[in-house]
Each structure stands twice: as C-alpha cells, then as structure tokens.
Design a protein around this nucleic acid. Structure first.
Lengths: 340, 340
DNA sequence: CTGTTAGCGCCTTCAG
DNA sequence: CTGAAGGCGCTAACAG
C-alpha cells in the first residue's frame, strides 16, 4: 500500500550478480568484504536510491537504535535544553529519540516506562517525577538489563548511572554570595526532601552558614513543591512575618519570580542585588529582575553528558559500572540596571 | 543477546492449542474471532507476560505507528507546548512521536526530513524554519504520499493540510486595542515576509489602521528577524528617533522584552498599558511587564489540532483533502499592577 | 470462526 | 572472500 520505495538489498544484489548476504555485509562495512565489492555495492545502492529498512534490521538484530527519554515536562527550559543536548548527540551517533513527559506524576511516569519499553528502546534517560513516592516501575528496565541513566533528579534506591549538577556547591556558593553582601537572616526554600537535588542544595547552604558562624533559624527553612501558587505562600510567610529575612534563597525560578512579584504588588522593597538567589535556567530570568543573582545549570550539558554515558553503556564500552558524574554549577551575578 | 522476554504469539498459541493467526487476530480484536477465544488468548497473554513485538508487526505492515515532528526549536515555549499537545493525542491513539529541531536553518531542516524519512514515519507535522528560502526537501514526503501537516509557520507553495492561528485577526485586534487607547503613531515590527504569519499580522494591522483612518507611516513598519539582538536595534531606531511612536506592536515576546529593557535602561518612559503588544506565549511574560497586553496563541491547541488532522489523513478518514484550519487568537489585556 | 502458508527485508550462521 | 539457507515475530491472504 505504501511501498513506493521498494529497493531492497536483493535488488542491488541482482543488479551486480552477487548474493544478498554480500550486499548486506558490504553495506555494513564488514571486514571480510573486498574494498572493490564494497565500492560497487555502495555505488549501486546510491544509483538505485536504496534506503535501508531499519524495521527489518531492527527485527533481526532486536535493537532499535532508539533511546527513550522521560522528563517531567518539556516546557521547562532546563528540560527542553536537556532534550536538545540529548537529541544532538544521539542523532550524531545514529540513534533516534523518543520523548515522554511524566507531568511530575508517578502514574504518568509509569505509563512512560511502559510506552518506552513497548517501543523496545535500547536505553533510557530519565529525570524523575516530583510527586512520586515509589520508583519501582523503573525495574521494568533494570530487571531486563536495559541501560538506564538518570539526570538531575535522581533517586538513590535505584542503582544506575547518574548525571547530576553540583547542587551542594550550588547551595554553598549561593549562601556565601548572600553572606558576602552582608545578609544574616537568610531564608532557604527547598523542594521535596526525597530528592537529592534539594537535600544537597540545602546541605551546601547550611554548610556555608556554619562556616561563617551564622545562626540557622529553623523557621527560615521552608519545604515547598516549588509551584507558582506555593511560591506565593512562601512569599507571604516570609515577607509578612514580624521579622522578615534579609535574603531569600528561592528553590527555583518560579518561586523566585512569585516572591518578586508579590513583593512588588505589596510595595515591599527587596534590594535585588541581595534578595533572591535561585536555581535558574529560564532564558528570561534576566529580564524579570535584571539584577537577580542566579545559580545556573546547563540543561544542554547535562543532557549531552547523560547521552554520552548511556551510549557508552549500550555499546558496552564501559562494563556497566554505575558511574555518577557531577557537573559544575555557576553563580551568575548580574549587574543592577541602576548601576549602568 | 537481549531477548529476555521471549514470549511470542506462538507461545500463547501452543499453550492454548490454537494457531498463531488466531492469537494474532484475537489480540487485534478482529471481529471474526469469538469472544470466548479472545478472552482465553488475552488471559493467557497476561499470564505469560506477553509483550507484543512492534518491530515485527511494523515490518509486516510497513507502518510504524510513529509520527515525526519538525520544529525550529523545542526550547521556545510555543513549540514545546505544541509538542505537548501533539504527544498527548498521538500517544492516546497509539502513536509514537519523533521530534527533530531545525534550529531555523534550512540545512538542518533538510536533515530532519531525511532522518524522519529513514525512520519511516507514518506522517509528519512541521513548522518551517525561518531562515529557509527553499522548501523542496519536503517533497521527500509529498512525492511519496507521506502525509504532511504544517502548523503555525506554513508555506503556500507546498500543498498540504495546515493549521494556523488567525494572525490577520491578531494583527487587527492588537491595532484596534492600541487605537482605543488613543495611540496614533503605532509602530509595527514584523518578521520575515516570506512567511504567512508575518504577512497576515501586518495586513490585519494595516486594515485596522485604515478602518480608523489613521495615517500609516512607512518608517514605523520594520522588518526584523525578531531576535534579541535585532530587538535592540528596533528599540534604538524607534525610541531614539526625533518623533518616536506612541505605541509599538512588537513581533514577538523577545522583541517586546528587548524594547522594554532598552527603554528601562535608558530611562525612557513607555506607559505599559499602551506601549507594546506582541504575539506572546512565554509563561513569564506577565512577570516581565505585568501590564503588557499580549496577543496569544495556544501552542497546545495548535499541536493537538495538527495531530488530529494528521491522524485522520493517516487513517484515511478524510480523503486527503487539503484542509486549512484557522484557530482563534486572544487578546490578553492585563491589569496594570499600579491599579491594584 | 479458525488454520495453513507465505512472506515483510535483513542478518547470520554455516559451508564453501 | 562469498553464497545458501533459515529465521527474527507477526500478519494477510487464502482456504476451509
């Protein structure tokens, strides 16, 4: 019905009076084929407009040259740039990419796993859903030795390779930055504490505070789902208290922005140079608050690294040793627009 | 090497003493199989942990249940939300999605076409690259009757189904909005004029101007690639002229933001209620300039609609009649934060 | 309603 | 270095 392009290796074989196997081998650069035949075969392939049928090859070799990606949502800049990194490298190496979004829900994530498994992907890259308590569904892959690499949001209970950013250091340098600006009462808004990234950022933060002998006030450490709504709650709690903090480490862009907006609305003055530091990736952060200092991580780099790792495992270059790669994080201190 | 999960339809067949074809049919809900056998087959399938091998099925039927998507870049919110719409519907209907990014370059777009073609996708959804002058590579699909649906950025020379937003109306209502605020000298920053969306927005804009008998000043109609850099150029040109406009229709978010930022830096006062109207999708637009009025289009809706159309064509529900669907566009007028 | 048969296009032993 | 033969798992005639 749809086979317009019918050129198969047998057509090439017939045209050259050789066997299909030879053509197959020539096309795959098999060492035991003479250079002459290889060239002849390839020339003829081009001439006939041959397009290899991946489906057939996949069936035979039972590998699909496809990797699956599970992310919370593609519309968050960190993840879409991670995808870009993943796709770029994967394609270069001849792999396709299938993307699934979990929407940060456990159930959806579990569906993603099923979908990717059914698509018989050769390996999977994932950043886990925020609202999940159980990550057993990933055993679909691990129990069948389908390579799995986590990035950014990882869970310790699953023994796989991981690519993370240096959240501990991120928390640490953010705190030191605020301290260097003279802040003492520094609030820290953290995410769900079953995820390493949030634990680590908080630990880094606390370490800096201790290093500089600054009292840590339990009331200023808040756990939040880091949504826009909850950002408002945090803003209220912190900014309208009797003794407001003089700086806030916001958990992410969204929270930072919610706080800034709330403060503006209420006419609360927060000096932006020292006010909020968030783990940030949105390209427009700098527009929002040009002097906002941010701790940034490159989604692209993380994606690329994760793919590198995964492809190595798939191609069995590394002996499936469970590596954890930690990527550096950068403090971006922007000039206040007043100063210009 | 990798076949841990070896249950095939034949295993089910053997276990039930029936033929493989019957199992295949039962699993596919073929009408000519008794309910009893269907149930028996499905139960046994579950019991044995059978996982259908899509690869084999694909090879046989020569359709992959996969659709390809070509977009300029996933990291732009409009496109990532379009992807979300596409994926959601596609998956629901049992299709996988492969995404390729053209980076707005003709050459990359051509590569995408090749990749998707080699993956033997059943159909393609695309939004064309900005910096392309030639769209012949799409003939790879059209000449082989592979269904192709364009969305948002479309080119007339290719006869396919299309899903667009009502850019003409968008331009029109944006202009009327500004006019209703008392503006007379209204600038219009437009994108590359070989793309319908920009032509239509401009035409809608001009129509509104004529309707209200407002002189159209050629100098205030600017063509721009709509990048951040060029946004600055536009800002300079417009804001620092001897006779600056009293309102600006910015081509997109990026340009709008560039202008606002430039104005802020230079201490140029532009009343936000009337100043800039852009085609906007970024989730943070409202943070940037809370009173900015925007003309919005939903990437999600566009993606969903395009997918609906494509799947209809693939499943031959419509007789490949080249439909063009125009989706409505909304003017979002935000309250100024001062007024609260 | 079900079984038989014959491939889809490619790869991979095994045998030269 | 090359050929012959068989099969990956599933489906679609065709025959009951």
């Amino acid at each position: 019905m749809k086979n317009e392009n019918n050129v198969t290796i047998h057509d090439i074989a017939k045209a050259l009076n050789i066997s299909g196997s030879t053509v197959s081998r020539a096309l795959n650069n098999n060492a035991r084929i003479s250079e002459k035949t290889k060239k002849a075969v390839k020339d003829m392939a081009k001439q006939l407009g041959y397009q290899p049928n991946a489906l057939a090859s996949n069936l035979r070799t039972s590998c699909t040259n496809t990797i699956g990606v599970i992310i919370p949502r593609i519309s968050r800049y960190f993840f879409s740039s991670a995808i870009t990194g993943i796709e770029e490298l994967a394609r270069e190496k001849g792999f396709n990419v299938i993307i699934c979004q979990s929407n940060d829900l456990e159930e959806r994530e579990s569906d993603c796993v099923q979908t990717l498994f059914a698509s018989r992907v050769d390996g999977v890259i994932s950043s886990v859903a925020l609202k999940a308590e159980n990550y057993d569904h990933y055993k679909t892959f691990t129990s069948r030795n389908i390579p799995l690499v986590f990035f950014d949001r990882v869970v310790d209970e699953l023994e796989t390779s991981k690519v993370v950013v240096d959240d501990f250091k991120g928390g640490f340098i953010a705190a030191e930055h605020l301290i260097s600006k003279g802040c003492k009462r520094i609030a820290h808004i953290s995410g769900p504490q079953h995820l390493n990234i949030y634990i680590n950022r908080l630990q880094g933060f606390l370490k800096a505070m201790r290093k500089h002998h600054i009292d840590i006030n339990e009331e200023l450490i808040i756990e939040s789902p880091l949504t826009r709504e909850d950002g408002l709650r945090c803003a209220k709690t912190l900014l309208e208290s009797d003794n407001p903090p003089d700086a806030i480490f916001a958990g992410n862009d969204t929270t930072a922005l919610s706080i800034i907006l709330y403060a503006k609305e209420k006419g609360i003055k927060i000096p932006e140079e020292v006010a909020v530091v968030g783990f940030s990736n949105e390209p427009f952060s700098e527009f929002l608050s040009p002097s906002l200092t941010t701790v940034e991580q490159s989604g692209f780099d993380v994606g690329t690294k994760a793919t590198e790792l995964l492809l190595d495992i798939i191609q069995n270059k590394t002996g499936n040793k469970q590596e954890t790669i930690v990527l550096p994080v950068n403090l971006i201190e922007r000039e206040s627009s007043d100063k210009k």
